[in-house]
């Protein structure tokens, strides 16, 4: 004899399990579908990046990039082949047109989301990549177009990578790892690889970022020593490998060593502003510009807070206090001591 409560409970359990869309089974299948989609898109992204950079994508390289077993990768690729996304022949993978479009969309979504985080939120730099890795699979092509418009259709993401325009191809990564840079020659750091996250965090903590000029002056004892941003940096080759450079013709090492920043300006000194660093973004950049921190402006140190930070600067007739890490973003030149009789100006 089966009691009524038993049947009712059974019914409730069945509803909880099998109700369309919100039931446990439906959710589980949805999650699996999403996971498959993520793996598929990540594999496409990997193949695309290999192709544009002249590397050969293989089953093994896909398995490595996605951190999955070879068998699972083979399964995934077979499925993708069946869907007309890739072709697998002679051990190498090739993208087919739908696959290429999807891969480009994912790269675009990723880089746009990173730009969004950099420009319009206060999310810490170290989190950008991680968040974008998730978001890239959620944005539809319409979403990315709207996002791009909202950001003013940026051409580069905050790491210095090109954001492929709608329908355009992904350009090859230019530049070489910093390890390979020649000694005593100024170069421009064009890109910082944001994976693995631990390495990226270390590099970022040093204040290194795309757009910084660097000059290596020694590669000894497993250390790469170089000058950048008015300071000496020391990196292990493993770290330096994650930095990419392009040559910087027309700049001498002296130019680089002579580079000075507002944070170095002492009380009683003044200097002409040369530019704002690329690391200064979004609301903060616009605010500094509005306050009159534009290239060509004379800046003089007016007061230093009793705690040593912030420092108040006289800019275009007004006294504005900036924190040290902000002053570090402002490049200056023509540093000089203020003559006594005009000190009050």
């Amino acid at each position: 004899m089966i009691s009524l409560p038993f049947i009712v409970s059974l019914l409730i359990i069945a509803v909880l399990l099998f109700w369309p869309d919100v039931g446990v089974v439906a959710r589980w299948r949805e999650a699996r579908r999403r996971a498959l989609r993520v793996r598929r898109e990540d594999a496409l992204k990997h193949v695309l990046k290999c192709e544009v950079n002249g590397q050969v994508p293989t089953l093994n390289s896909v398995a490595g990039a996605l951190h999955i077993r070879d068998g699972k990768a083979a399964e995934l690729l077979a499925d993708m082949e069946a869907h007309g996304l890739v072709t697998l022949g002679e051990g190498r993978l090739r993208l087919r047109q739908p696959g290429r479009e999807l891969a480009l969309h994912v790269v675009r979504a990723h880089r746009l989301w990173e730009s969004y985080l950099a420009e319009q939120t206060g999310v810490a730099e170290a989190k950008w990549h991680h968040l974008a890795e998730r978001k890239e699979h959620q944005l539809s092509p319409e979403d990315t177009i709207a996002l791009a418009a909202r950001l003013g259709n940026p051409l580069q993401d905050p790491h210095g990578d090109t954001i492929p325009a709608e329908g355009a191809d992904l350009p090859a990564d230019i530049g070489q790892p910093l390890n390979a840079a020649p000694l005593d020659t100024p170069v421009l750091i064009s890109h910082i690889e944001d994976e693995p996250e631990a390495v990226y965090k270390q590099i970022q903590a040093l204040g290194l970022r795309p757009g910084v000029k660097a000059c290596i002056f020694s590669k000894e004892n497993g250390c790469i020593r170089f000058w950048a941003d008015g300071r000496e940096h020391v990196l292990t080759p493993i770290l330096a490998n994650n930095l990419t450079y392009v040559p910087l013709p027309g700049t001498t090492p002296e130019d680089l060593f002579d580079e000075e920043f507002l944070s170095e300006l002492q009380a009683g000194e003044r200097a002409r502003m040369l530019g704002l660093s690329t690391a200064c973004r979004g609301a903060e950049r616009r605010r500094l510009l509005d306050l009159g921190f534009v290239p060509g402006t004379m800046i003089e140190v007016d007061l230093v807070s009793p705690a040593g930070d912030p420092t108040a600067y006289r800019v275009r007739g007004t006294v504005i206090a900036l924190r040290r890490e902000q002053a570090r973003l402002i490049r200056i030149g023509n540093r000089e001591t203020i003559p006594m009789e005009t000190a009050a100006r």
């Binding site: 319009q120 939120t121 206060g122 999310v123 810490a124 979004g282 609301a283 903060e284 605010r287 500094l288 306050l291 007016d302 007061l303 912030p310 108040a312 007004t318 006294v319 504005i320 206090a321 900036l322 924190r323 902000q326």
Partner: peptide, 13 residues
């Protein structure tokens, strides 16, 4: 509040 926008400036009138 990690994700909120932050920009410092302080005028000394």
């Amino acid at each position: 509040l990690r994700g909120e926008v932050s920009a410092f400036s302080l005028e000394l009138p």
